[in-house]
Structure formats: structure tokens, C-alpha cells
Design a protein around this nucleic acid. Sequence first.
DNA 1: TCCTCGTTCTGAACCGTTACGGTCAGCACA
DNA 2: TGTGCTGACCGTAACGGTTCAGAACGAGGA
Lengths: 362, 362
Amino acid sequence: MHARRPATLASLAAELGVSRTTVSNAYNRPDQLSPELRRRVLETARRLGYPGPDPVARSLRTRKAGAVGLLLTENLSYAFRDPAAIGFLEGLALACEGAGQGLHLVPVNPEREDVTAVHSAGVDGFVVYSVPDDDPHLAAVLSRPVPTVVCDQPRVEGVDLVGIDDHAAIAQLAGRLIGLGHRNIGVLCMRLARDRNDGFASIARQRTAHFHVQRARLSALADSFEAAGVDWARVPVVERFDHTTTSGESAAAQLLDANPEVTALICTSDILALGALAEARRRGLRVPHDLTITGFDGIAEAERAGLTTIRQPVLEKGRAAGKLLLGAADHSRPRQITLDTELVLGSTSAPPRTTEERWFGP
Amino acid sequence: MHARRPATLASLAAELGVSRTTVSNAYNRPDQLSPELRRRVLETARRLGYPGPDPVARSLRTRKAGAVGLLLTENLSYAFRDPAAIGFLEGLALACEGAGQGLHLVPVNPEREDVTAVHSAGVDGFVVYSVPDDDPHLAAVLSRPVPTVVCDQPRVEGVDLVGIDDHAAIAQLAGRLIGLGHRNIGVLCMRLARDRNDGFASIARQRTAHFHVQRARLSALADSFEAAGVDWARVPVVERFDHTTTSGESAAAQLLDANPEVTALICTSDILALGALAEARRRGLRVPHDLTITGFDGIAEAERAGLTTIRQPVLEKGRAAGKLLLGAADHSRPRQITLDTELVLGSTSAPPRTTEERWFGP
DNA sequence: TCCTCGTTCTGAACCGTTACGGTCAGCACA
DNA sequence: TGTGCTGACCGTAACGGTTCAGAACGAGGA
């Protein structure tokens, strides 16, 4: 059926004895030619197996690709593994399908510097989801002459941003724990930079973290607990490069081994917190009686586990990012959208046991 | 920084006083020009804010887009809502990132006939995930001169396919239920055609279903139960257009209202089965004592719920589809991959209560 | 000295389409 | 009979690259 060399608009025009413009119009502007001729064009197209104008050639000419690019920190497949990312993507997909735009997931490897995938994505704009501020892929995106919206991080001068108030959100959580009486805390956080550092994170590393979100959460915790009389320099912070429950387990184990006195484990994501819960269970620690554990994100699994956490509107973030990018609004000055978060009081937080209880039982 | 009119390869060449070929080579074939000149080219590019060759123009010339298109039955955002679809996508994403290919999600609306999104996707090939055999989008995909792989359904002459043996898989499950003694069964199934029919599905509708997978599962059930002496014409089959747990609940309610005598509810997906479980719970029916419920897919939620189901390797399906499309293998003759399934015996299946038990308690 | 060869760069064709500014016939109207 | 308008179609010039066959030139070998 298919000719050896696939039919083109030009070959169709030649076959019909009309100009290419006319064939093009048959597809794109039916009112520009007589119904009869249009019928003949489409009919001949079918006969020759011409599938309609080539999308790439059209994109070149019209300067529209009909798709939005998505860049994320992780391997492409990670997008389908992390519930928070999935929620974000669903929201973004909603915005895209509403505008008839495709969603082009850019295949990047966070441990490589190769940015060709960014350069070869035929898209009309980019959404960048939670990448480090020194990510070369981000730089590649920004160098392209298309609009860009960043979600969560980093904050870049002159670039639209959708996010939450990380500082305020986690300060609220910290306030709660302080109110309960916790002073011996430990923190489990996600990667702070592009280099892998699975272990304790020094204050210097915390302060210079290339992930703005993690930096903000840590500094908010530091502020809150310092204000409550805690010496932040003595608060153990364990970092994990991979964002999985397994990481949460090993991080919790590492922290509890080194600091058995902690009464509360604050995790900067629900995934890590779920891992910590598993580790606590393995150690025979009763949560929250022996140990308080908190998360961040508000994913469904966390809710099922009764985790005390901060719920953030992940789907709404995706939708907002999409709308910002695709909306008719003016791109002249950078816009910033901050969505609301909510403290979810689950069953994994309680006042700390007293020292006596720790030694002699409740 | 950006010039009013963005720099192009030609403007860069003019600025440097070299040919466009040379600039092109600076990016694509570094060995074709002196290191010194190449340095100057890249340096000037940076100065002029030239982001490198335009991906669309390059695609036009090289006839490669560097992306794989994905077409699915549902709204784009559905891909992130159904766990089975998510698993499939993760597998597909793994294959894509392995080959450095992007993943272009095509925005379609299953209730509309508009196929322009398919025609305007700049991709090197398509993966089609579980669509009806008369889907106009599928026709549009097949008309395009790019390789295509179908996952699950439909089977199209001459097109690569990745799937499972639906007939054998569900026959195994049916055999199990028959062995347990079930003869009064009911079936909850997903949509059988593109038109919405939320209610009982006649035999005619079952036989002419446009979704091969559902058709195969129903016919396998019919064969198995007919062989066990059950008159399939009397077996209630309830269909739902939307694939959600809510649909499962209402479908179960509708079926149990009309046929309170059924002892087993066979669902063609875990999602529907989870809904049925919820409905059974609401009615005070004990599962499996009062009612056996089975699913299909083997998603994580089902495992947690202890559902008796058929586990199919969703991630592997995605990966296989991607490999088939991207692999160097010859596309000369159609290939077919059938993956293994496994019967998972959960805690939602048991022998039926006797009639006496039904009336007088256990 | 002449020929060959490799390196470095160029010119022109081509990828398939759409935007833009026409042309031209036919018709109504004064 | 000339004028202006409209509907239907066309020609050309991009769009921004890549590719391929050579040209120009200096170096090395016989």
C-alpha cells in the first residue's frame, strides 16, 4: 500500500495537477478551496496513502510543536515511581490535554552531564520539576528560546515559578513537635546536591545545598528549634541520594544507631518517613510512643499509614504549572504561584517519653 | 541577552565568516574541523545566545524526532491514575531512557473523533496501549509511516504486539472457582466498546466487544463455566465505562441487587474488584465467606487487600513494547511477545456458602 | 618534481511544509 | 463599458538545519 517513497504534499499536488498551497489548504483551511476540489484532494491522498502533512515539517514552518517538555531531576522512569511526582504529572497532563498539547518527557540521567536530550526535544515550552540550581539540564532548558516554568525549585531570576512556602509549612510542623516537648530530634532528608552523599550532612552542606526546597526546610527547622533552645549543630541530619523507602529505612537505622536518644524523626518526604516507620517497627520501637515520625507531601500511602505530615497539593501544582505555561497570559514579567499546604495530624506523633519511661517502661 | 530575532546557524556562520556546514559540524562532527575553529564557533555561539541547532529543523532533515509517541484509550491524565497504566509507563520509560529517546504522550479524548493530535506528534514511532479495535486514533497512527507496537489490544494484522494470554489466564482463575464449587457467578467488566453502556451487557454485546482483551476474558469465562454446566446466558455481566473503584462499587451494587444469589464476583480488573470489595463491605457481606471476589492485574493495592487475582507483569510489558519499537531488530515481519501471568491466591476466595448457610447462618 | 593523501572547509541541494502576496475569471452594478 | 469585488487558486520564499561531493592546500613519499 505504502509507496516505496512515502507520498508528500508536493507529490500529491503533482498527481492532482494543483499547487502545494492548495493541498495544504485542503487540510488546514477548507474554506480556501472549493468543496469539490477538497474532496478530490483527500480522496487522492487516501489512494496514495498520504497520511496528511508531516508534523515535523509543519512544526518547523509554523514554529509550533504542539507539545510541552518536562524535565525532572531523576531518571525518566522515576516519574512513575514516586507518588508525589505521579500526582504532579497527572495535574500537568490535565492542563496539557485541556490545551490539546502533548507532553514530552525528556530522558535525562541525573548523574550525567549530557544535555543533548534537552536540545533535541521539539517542544513549545518546558516545565522543570524540582531540579538542583546547578543542574546543567536546567541551563540547557533556559538557553532555549521557549517559555519555561519551574516547579518547586530552583528559583531562577526572571523565570515563572510554582511552589509552596516550604519554610512556613515545616515551621508549623516544627512548632507542633516543640509544643509536644520534643528537643532531641533527628532529621532525614533527600539529596542536597548532585553528588552522592549517603550519610550525615554537615551544617556547611546543609547551608550550601543546591536543592532550594531541602535547604529551606532544613533552615526552617534550624530556626524553629534554635528558638526553642536546641543547638542545631548537635542535631543529626542524615541525607540520602536515592528517594525510596529503602533509603528511608537505612537512613533511620544510621541515625538511630548513632543517636539513640532522639525522640522524634523529622523526614523531609513521606517516602523517607514510610521507610523510617518500617525501620522503627523492625527495631521494636512503638510509634508514636517510643518515637515520633513525621513526613512531608501528603501522599496516599502516608495517609493510610496515619503519618503526621504536611499535605501539599501536588496535582494542583502540576495543573498550575501547565496553565502558567500554556495560558494566554503575558510572559513579559515573571509570575509566581504559591499554593497552600496543610498540617495533617496523624497517629505517628506524640509527646516524647520521659527519660524515666525510657529506662523503666511506661 | 537574547537578540530580538534569535540567532540561527546561518547568522552564526555569517558572523564568523564561515559556512553553515562548518557551524553544523562544530556541533555534530567535531572531527571535521580544527579544534581552534570549533572553539571559536562555540564561543561565538555563547556570546550570541545561540542555543545550538534547532531540534525541529534537525528532525526534519534527519527524519528522526528522538521520541516515541504513546497513545492510550483514555484521557492523557488517566495514565497517571491507573496503577496498571503507571506500571506500564514506568517500563516504557525505562526502555526509552535506555535508548535516549523521549516519551511523547499524545493528548486524546476517547469520546471524541479528533485525531489531529496523532497527526501532529513529531515522533519516530508509536506505542499503542490498550485501545478498541475501531479507535480512529489507532487508524491515524497506523496511517503514519512509522513503526508501531501495540500493547494488549487490539491485534492488528502485521503490527507488533505485546500482551498476555488472556484466555488462559482467566481460565485458570475460573477453574479455581469452579473447583471451589461456585456455579452462581456474576461478572464485572470494563467498557466493551466506545459507546458508554453502564449496565448489563448482553451476550451479543459481549461477543462483539471492540476491546479484544475484555472479549477474550469473557469468552474464556463462558467456555469454562459452560463446561462446568453453567448456562452462560443466565450469568449477569455488568459493564462500566469508567475504570475507577467507584465504578466497581456501583457495578457490584447493580449486580447484587439484581442477582442476590451469586456467590462469586469475577472482575476483569483489580480496580473494579477493589470497588466491589468496598460495596460488599457496605452491605455487610463477609468476603470470602459470603461472597468471593476476584480481580485481574495484580496491582499493589490488590496485593495489600489480599485480593485473589491474576498478576500480569505490567512493567515488563512496557519495557518489552519499548524494546520492540526501539530495538535494532528487523521490522520486516510482525513480532509477537506473550508474557507470563500468575494466579495469586488471596484471601477473597473460598467455597460458596450452601443454601442453608445462606438462610440460617454458618 | 610530481603524485597522492589527509585535513579543513565550502556550495548547493534537500527535508516537507506553510505564510504571504499575488493573479485571474466571473459577476453585479452604475 | 468600465469598475470593484469575491472566490478560487498559485508561485515564491522562507523555516533552520544536514548532507555530500568536491575545492584548496600543505605534507609526505617515490
